[in-house]
Simulated assay, not measured.
Amino acid sequence: MFAANNPRVEPRTRAMVRARLRDAQGERDVCLIDISTRGVLATAEHPPRRGEFVELQIGRNRLAGQVKWTGDHRFGVSLRERVSVAAMAEGGNEPVELARSVSQVRARRSTGDALLSNPQMLGRMFDFALRVVAVACVGYIAFDSIGEAFAPLQEAMRAR
Rank of each mutant, 00 (worst) to 15 (best):
23 D>S: 06
104 Q>A: 14
143 F>G: 12
88 M>S: 01
27 E>V: 13
104 Q>T: 08
109 R>W: 10
22 R>D: 01
114 A>N: 05
34 D>G: 06
23 D>F: 01
108 R>C: 12
105 V>M: 15
47 P>R: 05
36 S>Y: 03
16 M>R: 11
27 E>G: 09
102 V>I: 14
124 R>M: 13
134 A>P: 00
104 Q>Y: 01
83 V>L: 06
60 R>C: 08
86 A>R: 10
94 E>L: 13
98 L>H: 06
6 N>A: 14
87 A>V: 02
43 T>Y: 01
74 R>I: 09
152 P>Y: 02
27 E>Q: 14
154 Q>P: 00
1 M>V: 11
77 V>W: 01
108 R>P: 02
115 L>S: 10
20 R>G: 00
76 G>Y: 03
110 S>Y: 04
75 F>V: 04
134 A>W: 04
5 N>P: 00
137 C>V: 15
83 V>T: 09
32 L>C: 07
84 S>C: 02
53 F>Y: 10
61 N>I: 02
122 L>W: 04
80 R>A: 15
95 P>I: 07
106 R>Y: 11
10 E>N: 08
76 G>M: 06
81 E>Y: 05
151 A>C: 08
138 V>R: 11
27 E>F: 02
71 G>A: 15
83 V>R: 03
135 V>S: 14
78 S>G: 11
7 P>Y: 00
114 A>K: 15
1 M>S: 14
77 V>D: 05
40 V>R: 02
34 D>W: 01
47 P>K: 05
106 R>G: 06
51 G>F: 04
153 L>Y: 07
9 V>H: 13
14 R>W: 03
127 D>E: 14
123 G>E: 14
136 A>Y: 06
88 M>G: 00
143 F>L: 12
101 S>R: 11
93 N>K: 14
51 G>T: 06
11 P>G: 12
10 E>A: 15
106 R>K: 15
116 L>Y: 04
95 P>Q: 08
34 D>P: 01
93 N>P: 06
160 R>K: 11
29 D>R: 09
74 R>D: 05
20 R>P: 00
106 R>I: 13
85 V>Y: 02
44 A>D: 01
9 V>F: 07
62 R>M: 07
66 Q>N: 07
53 F>C: 09
149 A>P: 00
154 Q>L: 13
126 F>P: 00
131 R>K: 12
149 A>L: 15
39 G>T: 04
26 G>H: 03
7 P>R: 07
19 A>V: 01
71 G>V: 08
76 G>H: 07
138 V>A: 15
